[in-house]
Nucleic acid binder design. Structure first.
Lengths: 344, 344
DNA sequence: TTGTACGCGTTATCAA
DNA sequence: TTGATAACGCGTACAA
């Protein structure tokens, strides 16, 4: 136990509060608050005394009390479909790293691609009174929308800019990305193109890519895209399953656009094993540009997005909104890039 | 600027509190509190009235006030080296999913393998008064230890059981895992073995695996393990770099143990490209059993751990500690499994 | 089964 | 530049 103990109040219940620090430093609690809050209205000498007291007593501010008194928290909520996807994990990391210097914590919700879970998780997270909520995609249930609207938090929707955001958005155009892939496949001479991805209801971003692909295919006057829907979340095994389904149901297919690199990579490896020549016999295109995409043989043609950059940008937009410096952007479209390699 | 309302009658302020709900339902605030807290001491009829009021007013409890009044939070802090690693991401997901039903939020800190950052992040996260802190590994600075000790939070250390935990631990024996790999390599006839991983100071888990490997190699009376240290975090490119360094500095090497599958996978792909025959010319073993490990050719021999299970277990241990049901375990050793495939 | 009084640790306001 | 006081919204303890 400490040698130095507040004498006059028997209220020292073990936890060290600002009052303890104030007493130790011979100032008022308010002055301690100013020091902790880096207020400029403190004499240098006083500040040093208080900081010494903080060190000596190992004082750690209580954020709950701060939030309650100031009616504002230091928390941002991020709701993503799943942390299993390296893309979403990278986004979250971008958010955390950008917010850490500001002492803002990030709490995460996994919806597993379920709208019902999104609602429940949002409701739960709103109890923390976050200063901002970062969502995935532009498609949300009415309940989510009304919860958001009513709570008045800043909202940032990510991964999609093909629509109107609730509040702010940062991402890229999935439609254009899909269209770009379609044009590439058409121009390289593919005639019968397939798309493998999640269900349209669950993953509207993948759906947009599909629609973009369809547009390019239509413009090239090719047969309709053969679509294989798999349940989310998708893993490498789903890539093989998707490949199998395409080969079975549309055997003339000569190009597949997978909605994620995990699947495309697995498909390439499986084709190698089966002796299916890529891209001569079957062209393959992925999405996400995972690190291994450049390393497989043939290397994977894919679309590079910037998940970490997206997370960092979302965080910056939130900070800008909070500081009300006026330069808060409402919609930021990040570049995506078609990376042409050996597989298509 | 917000102005405080001196009157407590004028509850027309923006935020809806328990008092508003209480008034609407014709009960006291305390009864509302009981309903929100699922207390059994509320008449069914009253409960329904209150719940209707909550719905009607769209009341959302304020967690800061709850924490302050009850002197306990609903937050768990998880501190990991980086969210870029799928293993750590899986662990975090395990924690989140296990805690979500209990309405406990998870806040994440990324140390980037830096002890200094671990200290700073921990200090910052402790302001949220988490009910538990989940750390990575058993090696922590004195400051981290004293912060933890002083705050009195429950602590769970993960990913390593080769040592004494501060409080509780869940993980596996990295030393044994490394030893297992070493025995396999020796038994299959490898004579000159190399290890590629992070610096010993930064990643003590990888260091333990290295030491286990060395023990097996020593028992087999083989030449010392050639070690290549790379800076963390490690990516696929580091696998290729590690491969290059081994081939350059220890050209007689006939087996490499990579401290993570990301590197091992990249190395296999690179060997394929260069015409290095695996495992005849060079055996390769990874760590982590990532999904692609089974899909590359030759498939990757590796060690399977259970990151998600580890996260879930850590969460359960925390819950057990909180409920003080007495069955809180102090050290849980999860199984790891050597998965022998084609590469070694 | 329900209500009343009080305090949790901090910040905002205003006075000194 | 500093301090006194009053909230912030809720749970705990106890009374009814």
């Amino acid at each position: 136990m400490k040698t130095r103990k507040p004498q006059k109040e028997a209220k020292s219940s073990g936890t060290i509060t600002m009052l303890d620090v104030a007493e130790y430093a011979g100032v008022s609690a308010q002055t301690v608050s100013r020091v902790v809050g880096n207020s400029s209205l403190v004499a240098e000498k006083t500040r040093r005394r208080v900081e010494e007291a903080i060190q000596a007593l190992r004082y750690i501010p209580n954020d709950a009390a701060r939030s309650l008194a100031s009616a504002s928290s230091r928390v941002v909520a991020v709701i993503i479909p799943t942390l299993s996807s390296s893309a979403f994990a990278a986004e979250v990391k971008g958010v955390i790293d950008a917010l850490e210097p500001h002492k803002i914590s990030v709490i995460i919700g996994n919806t597993e691609y379920s709208q019902a879970r999104e609602e429940a998780i949002l409701q739960s997270l709103l109890e923390r009174r976050p200063i901002g909520v970062i969502l995935t995609g532009l498609q949300h249930s009415p309940k989510v929308r009304s919860l958001l609207q009513q709570s008045g938090v800043a909202v940032i929707e990510t991964w999609d800019t093909d629509g109107d955001p609730i509040d702010m958005a940062v991402g890229f155009s999935n439609f254009t990305a899909g269209y770009d892939v379609g044009k590439l496949l058409c121009e390289r001479g593919s005639k019968r193109i397939a798309f493998v991805g999640g269900g349209s209801a669950q993953d509207s971003r993948a759906q947009s890519r599909y629609l973009g692909l369809c547009k390019a295919v239509k413009e090239a006057k090719l047969p309709d895209v053969h679509r294989v829907e798999l349940s989310l979340p998708m893993s490498g095994n789903d890539g093989i399953r998707g490949l199998d389904e395409v080969l079975r149901d549309a055997p003339l297919t000569d190009a597949i656009f997978f909605s994620a690199d995990t699947m495309a990579l697995a498909a390439i490896l499986e084709c190698n094993r089966r002796g299916i020549r890529i891209p001569e016999q079957l062209a393959i295109c992925g999405f996400g540009d995972y690190e291994l995409a450049a390393m497989v043989t043939p290397s994977l043609t894919t679309v590079r997005t910037q998940p970490d950059e997206m997370g960092a940008t979302a965080a910056q937009m939130l900070l800008a909104r909070i500081s009300e410096s006026g330069n808060a952007k409402h919609k930021v479209v990040l570049a995506h890039q078609l990376v042409r390699r050996g597989s298509a």
